[in-house]
Each structure stands twice: as structure tokens, then as C-alpha cells.
Design a protein around this nucleic acid. Sequence first.
DNA 1: CGCATTATTGAAGGAGTTCAACCTTGGTGG
DNA 2: CCACCAAGGTTGAACTCCTTCAATAATGCG
Lengths: 231, 231
Amino acid sequence: MKVDRIAVRSLPLFERMSDVDLDSFLDHASSWPVLTGETVFKQGELATSFYLLLSGRLKVTQVTGDGQQFIVRVVHPGELFGFAKALQRPDYPATATAVMESVVLSWPSNLWSQFVEQNGRLAVSAIETMGKQLEEAHSRIREMSTEEVERRIAHVILRLSLRAGRKEESGIRINFPISRQDIAEMTGTTLYTVSRVLTAWEARGLVKGGRQKIVICDLPGLSLLSEGARD
Amino acid sequence: MKVDRIAVRSLPLFERMSDVDLDSFLDHASSWPVLTGETVFKQGELATSFYLLLSGRLKVTQVTGDGQQFIVRVVHPGELFGFAKALQRPDYPATATAVMESVVLSWPSNLWSQFVEQNGRLAVSAIETMGKQLEEAHSRIREMSTEEVERRIAHVILRLSLRAGRKEESGIRINFPISRQDIAEMTGTTLYTVSRVLTAWEARGLVKGGRQKIVICDLPGLSLLSEGARD
DNA sequence: CGCATTATTGAAGGAGTTCAACCTTGGTGG
DNA sequence: CCACCAAGGTTGAACTCCTTCAATAATGCG
């Protein structure tokens, strides 16, 4: 499928790349749609490609040996994912699933090293992308080490609202379907506890819930809570 | 201080770099010793340099707003650290402290982008290094999400033994001073719980404790435990 | 040797999990 | 069009793992 150069050009990852380099990069790419619930790749599969999300939203999940699932990250438009080769792995360590209709770009895995070596700007961008991810991962570790469940849930929702928040009449809505179970898998708790916390918040007017839906009504209030304000 | 090229050459980070590139890289570096308990940089300081640990051992810690400390990572010889610029940050997000006598190499921060852009192999290496860190961070998140304290402690100790294990008569010793408090800050628990777990393990012959000391006596047994074997 | 640092251990309490039962929602097809 | 029903959500009660606090013991450095 043909790739829209204008759309790609505007992504942070490529903004500093020359036109010539961008063209040679995109020449090897192919783009295709992913329907809700479909997977781009599965945990344990051979890593034949690396990807860029053009539109939509994915969740990247891991299943542990004893069958428990958790969400490694949410992929937002413009982000690279599935670059297992950068981790020196032959296989994908996790599964990428579309939570809404999405479009992805893909390249053969073996081009990764070549592109990075040949194109310094891409390398710097890739490192910055990974750096951001690393920082976010450390934030999650810190939160899980030191914070109670309620604050962790607040942090996750605030983080999502930054990258997927959409203003509505009643507040800022997380702009993709997300269940209590999903939030539980992002915060290391159970769907029951998430439900209880969200119900309590709704009673205090902080958020408005719904089936696979969250709307933030009182952003400052939620921020305060995430920073450990006692109520 | 003069830099030992032979020693640096053998590090994974530089093994694929040409002699000329390595020389130009090392020409800008300076090396110096860090005594036990001293810091290389402090959380919040302006990130003037990035570093490579030549020998010894560091812990990288963060203090949260409400005064709780936790260990972001342990830096082993040969690893890059303090590359805040890669995270697009002006300041260091954490504090790096020597837990034993160490030697570090440092470069001015502003050379980071330049080196990465000009030297594809370094870029690939740096990305692989960050990839490893990212993978480890995700492991920690997974463990904190899904595992009980005992298994998390087992994982941390096994991970440390891979990178800092030294064979002794009685077993594999973690080759740097590490307290119960340290392990607690790496696993998101309290020093009391760590103490209780280690005492129980010692009774079962899995490890041998001591002041700032851990020796693994039964590696297979500990591995089993980390994978969730019920006792 | 003295003392600060680190480690152990008991008891009480609490935050969150687990299990079970029940309720809501919205998409599908009859 | 609306009734059905599977997927998602709520809520109560019991339980448990871990924390917290406090008191005591061991270690090794200066």
C-alpha cells in the first residue's frame, strides 16, 4: 500500500531526516490496516519486521509463565514498536493488539541496523524515543515501588490523557476503548480494585466512567491525588 | 587522567568501532576514581557529562517527592550511565553513588549527539544497550505487577548474580556490598520483609547472608523459587 | 573498645486480593 | 425494532500478605 509522505514527515521521529533519506527509508516500507482485536505480532513469534503506528491505538501485552497478563505499553500514533532487533532478540517479547482500527507501517527487521548506522539523525531520534520509553518505564517502577494503588491508577490515567486525551463537553476523554481490566494490567492491581477506585472518584466528581470509557472531569483534582494529596 | 585503550576496546559497547573512531572518542574523555559513598552526579543537577563505568559498582537512586528512595538500576563495569541528553533532559533524573571504589570515564554531554550521529556503530551499540535496559525495566514492571515479594527478591538476586556473581567455596557471592535496605529499594518492599525472606532462605540452605553480603548456595533452588515453585 | 550502622524478630494493623453473586450495557440477529 | 446475551462492571465479605512500629541483637569500623 502507498505511504503518505506528508503525514510521515510531520512525525517527530523523522522531522530532522533529509528528504532523500526519508524517501529511501519509506521505499522499503509497506502499510496496512489492523482491525480492532487483531494482532500485529504475537509473543514468541520470529521478529521479521519492525513497525510504526500511523493511526489508531495498540496495546502491547506479555503473558507470564503462570498465565498472568500485563500491559507493557500503549502504542500511540507516530511511535515505533516491535523493534526486537534493537534488543538483540530473534523473537518478539510481547504481543501487539489493536484496541481500535489502526494503520501500521512495517519494515523488514534486517534493515534496522542498516538504517540506524547509515542515518545518524534516525539513530538520534530512535535513541530519544527509547530514552523516553526508558524514562516512562522507570516512572512506572517508581510508582509501583512507592505508591498506593489509587495514586498509581491516577498516574496511568493522567499519562494516557496526555497522549490520548480528547476534549469533550463533560471533560477530557481517553480517546480509545479501555476497560477496568486494562487499567488493572497497567497498574499491577485487580479489576475489582480499579472498579472500586473509579466508583469512589465518580462520587467525588473527579471522573466519569462507563463501559470501556473514562472521562476526566477534574484534572487538577486528579493531579493532586496522583501527587499524594490525602483526601 | 590517561585512558587505557586496551581495556576500553574489550567492552561490548566499542568492540565494533574502528580504531580511528575509538581514538577520536577517547580523546575527549577523562577518567577518574570515585570512592565508596561518593556520588558521580546528583538528582536535579545540570547534566554536563555522560559516563562509562570502567570498574567498581554504582547504584542509581531516585528520591520521590515524599522522600521515599528507590534504586533505578545498578551500574556494572562497561555500562554507559548518566546519558540524560539521550532522554532529552537538561538535568540528571537520579543520583549515581559508588557502593565500592570505582573508576569512571566521562565526556561532555554536548558531544553525545555528535558522536552518535557520526558513528553508526556507536549508535547501534548505544541502542542495544538501551534496549537491554528497557527489557530489564519491563521485567521489573512485570515482576512487580504479577509476583509476590519472595519471587521478586529471588529475581533481583539472580539478576545481580549474573552480572556481579563471584564463585566462592560456599557458593556464588554478590561481589559488592549490598544491604537489606538496598534489596528492598530494588524490589519495592521493606527491609523487614527482605530480612525475613533471607532468614527463611538461609534456614532452607538456599543462601547465606551477612552484613551487606549475600552468597547463593543453591542456585537451581533459587531459580525454581523465582519461577514460582511452591515450597 | 565503643558506637554507629545494619540486621533480626515479634505483634498489631491495614491495604488490597480473592471469590462469589449480581447488575449494566450495547451489539446482533430474529 | 426490541429481546437476548455475552462482555464488561459493581459490590460485599472474608482473608492474607505485607507493612509498620518497636525493641533487641549483631557487626565491624575508627
